[in-house]
Design a protein around this nucleic acid. Structure first.
Length: 156
DNA sequence: GCCAACGTTGGC
DNA sequence: GCCAACGTTGGC
């Protein structure tokens, strides 16, 4: 199976790249959008993920993560005390899924949305055209180009 | 904090 | 199945 490439958004106030460093790996709970969920359900172990901080100034790709567990039901949908609780989801047929990702690298240079829009190679990214999708596919060339712009020390 | 763009819900 | 009303996301 060929590797796929993705971009996942997080609000740094909620869960930043530094939180991922501290935890080493995490489950990507709380996605409540079908398109984003469907993308997570397509993920395979070993897929590469760009870590994006939204709602910061400027919004930017800040790091690199990797899928370490393929999609499984997001337990927060059944937790009434969770903000992500979904009363209409059925335990036998869970509506929401999540994956686990591990930390790979925090970039020394953040690549901002503006810089991405300015790159001919990147201006067709989903990020640019559908700004609301929090889990989105990325082309390998786009992934590599962003690694370069971010001065990544690791080869793909 | 504002608000445009987008997604979802629910009445008909 | 349409679409108005509502809720959420995320750039600014």
């Amino acid at each position: 199976m060929k590797k796929s490439y993705w971009l996942m958004k997080s609000e740094p106030d909620v869960y930043s790249i530094d939180d991922l460093i501290a935890d080493g790996r995490t489950h990507w709970d709380g996605v409540r959008n079908y398109q984003a969920r469907n993308n997570m359900m397509k993920m395979a172990v070993g897929d590469e993920v760009l870590y994006y901080h939204s709602r910061q100034v400027p919004p930017a790709v800040v790091g690199w993560a990797r899928v370490v567990k393929e999609s499984y039901p997001d337990f927060t949908q059944f937790d009434e005390t969770s903000g992500y609780y979904d009363s209409r989801s059925d335990e036998k047929n869970p509506r929401w899924h999540m994956v686990d990702v591990e930390f790979v690298e925090k970039f020394e240079v953040e690549t901002s949305l503006t810089q991405i829009k300015d790159q001919e190679l990147l201006c067709d990214m989903v990020l640019v055209n559908n700004s609301r999708l929090s889990v989105q596919p990325v082309l390998k060339e786009e992934f590599e180009w962003i690694l370069k712009m971010s001065c990544s020390k690791i080869e793909l």
